[in-house]
Design a protein around this nucleic acid. Structure first.
Lengths: 151, 151
DNA sequence: ACAATTTAGTTGCAAATGTAACTAAATTCC
DNA sequence: GGAATTTAGTTACATTTGCAACTAAATTGT
């Protein structure tokens, strides 16, 4: 059976998705690394903590789509740099509450606009409707992939 | 400046893209690994070689969006498994021509339909028009990210 | 024609990653 | 109320990755 007639890598969706994602995250990652010395994961943690008050690591893993080991490592590095602080959680001795320190907050205030400019630069040339569609399609795809992975 | 008002990670496009891509490629990768013992990169090389006659590693890097080190490693593993063969390139002593062996061809014939089923499963629930849009939007995004990375 | 540069591909090494095993606290369920 | 299980988070280890340095062949420029 001539499978090569129907399978073309360049039109294969998981491939396109991977290329698009790798290119954009590499670009974005380099910028965070160069300007702020932050890895993508550290940046994600900061982004979420910046919009919340204090969260457990567990809550961070849920809202960053990172796994708990990755969160743990990112948080440790951020604590070492003095950008995040850890406070005892009084009702649960296993977990601690995490929050930005003032230094962390000021990094956040500096990084967030840069992040938004990145996004704007990337989406320059896309109409609002297209952006809406893209986001929607990606969300549906994520959900689908998650369902499929369960089996 | 209250950056937290405007930056929400869950609506941040590079993040959505990364989550969507990681979920789908993780799912797909596990399947290739489990069924055929192929990494994503090995599979890409096979996919491209399956649709071509014989290519240099250079041509492979161009059409798989992998870098030359990754291609080199994938090709080496495939040669060791007897799925790919390397022939002298008579006009250029630096590079060699790569092609699927019969064994490689038969793996290709087996994997390609699985890959297409994966894609179909993933895209179940998407209309043809949506699929077209998604592919188009991803391609534009890739191109944009590449341009931006150059500076 | 030959020195300098570019291109193809590989190798080595440091850093990042994923997985599994682990500790400790909380919860469940007799 | 106490054993068994689940949950939070960290650590250890093996694998993968990414980058820079390298070899060797081809190309360029003089």
């Amino acid at each position: 059976m001539p499978a090569d007639v129907t399978l073309r890598l360049e039109a294969y969706l998981p491939y396109r998705l991977s290329v698009a994602s790798n290119r954009t995250s590499r670009w974005v990652a380099r910028s965070y690394e160069a300007r702020f010395g932050l890895s993508i994961w550290q940046w994600r943690v900061i982004a979420v903590l910046g919009g919340a008050d204090r969260l457990t690591a567990q809550a961070l893993t849920a809202s960053t789509a990172m796994d708990k080991v990755t969160v743990s490592r990112a948080v440790r590095a951020l604590i070492e740099r003095g950008l995040v602080e850890r406070k005892k959680h009084q009702s649960d001795g296993r977990s601690a509450l995490l929050a930005l320190t003032p230094a962390g907050r000021s990094v956040y205030d500096e990084v967030a606009p840069v992040a938004l400019r990145h996004e704007a630069a990337l989406l320059d040339g896309f109409s609002p409707e297209e952006i809406r569609q893209l986001t929607d399609l990606l969300l549906r795809l994520e959900k689908r992939a998650e369902e499929l992975a369960e089996d």
